[in-house]
Structure formats: structure tokens, C-alpha cells
């Protein structure tokens, strides 16, 4: 067990078992995970507890606009963990949202941990559902359970998990409570021992048909991506940042370079870009 470097008044979050904080030693990791969530849900507190680093927590004017990276070892696996900027949505209408969204979309993540505030679930679940549209490798960290209890709120984590189709782990990140179970659950997801069935919203049949028309073209253009359905939905919604990314070839596979042949026109895609 590595020496604990945190200086929080609450003391050092305790994590039992085979766990080592590795700070910024992020080379040669086995799995990449990210912490997403609304602002002020305890993402950075959890990040610090996992990595042993000391990023700013609480409401401070600088905010996390860049993402911080750290590492830890748990059981036989080494993890790189990324603390994403807090956002209410992944629509990419601000720099924070764009960083968080691009990382969840294109970051090749093994798991997204969405940290939610148990005292404001209604607000927090909006982002959870958006993340579930993009990836099924999701674990929900139901944080601030102490605050919920103080306010007389009881949150049924098992029922929430059944309804969302992904694991939900109750936590008090500031006291290190629930971190053991979170790490075990993340391990189950990244190793494929646990498969999730994320709740997704049924589309209107007409929109579903339009999505189905776009899908083969997007799959053909971007074989290296895994979220074609999400891309198709954003295109139909008229999302400028996605339209631009397609026009500028920003979604091309970095390994093989450009994917859109300059002289080839795809009518369905052109039509979607025109909307």
C-alpha cells in the first residue's frame, strides 16, 4: 500500500485489499477509466482518493477545465483514471462539455464512472442517460449518501441499478466509503465479467428509420468508432459540432488517416448535413 498523501481534514480515505495509489505514474496501464458527472458531485474527491494526487476540490473559480490524469493499481490491474470537467449535458455548447463529450466518445475508455449527487438525483440522471446513449460500459457512483441521509432521503441503489441497467454503487467519497465496492464493480465491467443493459430511450419510428438509413454509412466511414447510433442521432438533431467534425474529417481514424474520399458523395449523409 502506497503512502497516503492526502491532507483532507476527514483523514485518509481507506481502501482495503490490494490497492496502490500511483500518482502520475500512468505508463503501461491495463485499463482506462474516466470520472464524469455534474459539477460538485465529488469527482475530484474520488480522483484524489484513487490516485493520491491533490487536485482542487470544492467550488473554486478556476474549475476543472482541463482534465487531470492519475493512476492506481487494484488487484492485478493498473488503471489510468481521468477526472473530466463537470457538466450537466454532453451537447457540447461549452468548452467543458466538449472536452467531456469528446473523451467519452473517442477516448477509447474501458469504463465511464458517472459520479452523481444522491441529494439531487432528478438533475443528475439526465447526464447519466446521455452517457448511456454513448456507451454501455458505465458504473454509477451514487455519492454524497451522507448528505442524502442528513436530509432524510433514502435512495434505493439496487432499484436504481435495475432501472438504469448498469451497476450503482452508494458512496461517501470524502470518507472513502464505497471505494472498495466501486473498484470491484469497475473491475467486473472492464474485464467483461459483468455485462450491462443500459436503458435507452425509444425513438419515434420516423426518427428510428432515419437513424437506420444513416447507420451503414457512418459505420463504413468510421469503422474505428463504436457509437455510430449516437452520431446519427446528433446529425439528425442538427448538432453543429458533429457536422463540423464530419466535414473537417476530425472523426477519421488517426492510424489510417482520412476516411472520406474527396470525390465520393453520400446522399443520405449530405441530406442529414443539410437539415
Amino acid at each position: 500500500m502506497a503512502g497516503c498523501q492526502c491532507t483532507q481534514a476527514a483523514g485518509c480515505p481507506t481502501v482495503s485489499g490490494n490497492f496502490t495509489r500511483l500518482g502520475i505514474n500512468i505508463d503501461n496501464y491495463d485499463f482506462l477509466i474516466a470520472l464524469a458527472g455534474n459539477p460538485n458531485t465529488g469527482k475530484t474527491t474520488l480522483f484524489n482518493a484513487l490516485s493520491g494526487l491533490r487536485q482542487h476540490t470544492g467550488n473554486w473559480p478556476g474549475k476543472t477545465v482541463v482534465r487531470s490524469e492519475g493512476a492506481f493499481r487494484h488487484h492485478e490491474y493498473k488503471y489510468k483514471v481521468v477526472d473530466l470537467p463537470g457538466t450537466y449535458s454532453l451537447l457540447s455548447t461549452s468548452e467543458d462539455e466538449e472536452i467531456a463529450r469528446d473523451f467519452i466518445l473517442f477516448g477509447n475508455l474501458d469504463c465511464v464512472v458517472v459520479v452523481v449527487d444522491a441529494t439531487a438525483l432528478e438533475r443528475n440522471l439526465n447526464l447519466v442517460l446521455q452517457v448511456l446513449e454513448i456507451t454501455d460500459r458505465v458504473v454509477v457512483a451514487l455519492n454524497l449518501m451522507d448528505e442524502a441521509e442528513r436530509k432524510g432521503l433514502y435512495v434505493d441503489a439496487r432499484k436504481l441499478s435495475r432501472e438504469l441497467g448498469v451497476p450503482v454503487v452508494p458512496m461517501v467519497a470524502r470518507e472513502g466509503k464505497g471505494i472498495d465496492q466501486l473498484l470491484q464493480t469497475v473491475e467486473d465491467v472492464v474485464t467483461g465479467r459483468l455485462s450491462t443493459r443500459p436503458r435507452r430511450i425509444d425513438l419515434d419510428p420516423q426518427i428510428e428509420e432515419a437513424v437506420q438509413q444513416l447507420l451503414p454509412h457512418l459505420k463504413n466511414l468510421y469503422p474505428h468508432l463504436s457509437n455510430h447510433r449516437w452520431l446519427a442521432m446528433r446529425l439528425l438533431e442538427g448538432d453543429r459540432s458533429i457536422e463540423d467534425a464530419i466535414r473537417n474529417d476530425a472523426l477519421a481514424d488517426p492510424e489510417t488517416g482520412s476516411t472520406v474520399p474527396a470525390d465520393e458523395e453520400i446522399p443520405e449523409l449530405e441530406a442529414a448535413l443539410e437539415v
Binding site: Y88, S89, L91, T93, R123, N126, E237, G238, D239, R240
Partner: peptide
């Protein structure tokens, strides 16, 4: 309508 509406709804 559209993204502006969605944006405000995402904010609650």
C-alpha cells in the same frame, strides 16, 4: 426550439 431548448432543459 432545437439545441437552445435542449440546452435549457439539460440545465433543469
Amino acid at each position: 426550439q432545437g439545441l437552445e431548448r435542449r440546452r435549457l432543459m439539460d440545465l433543469g
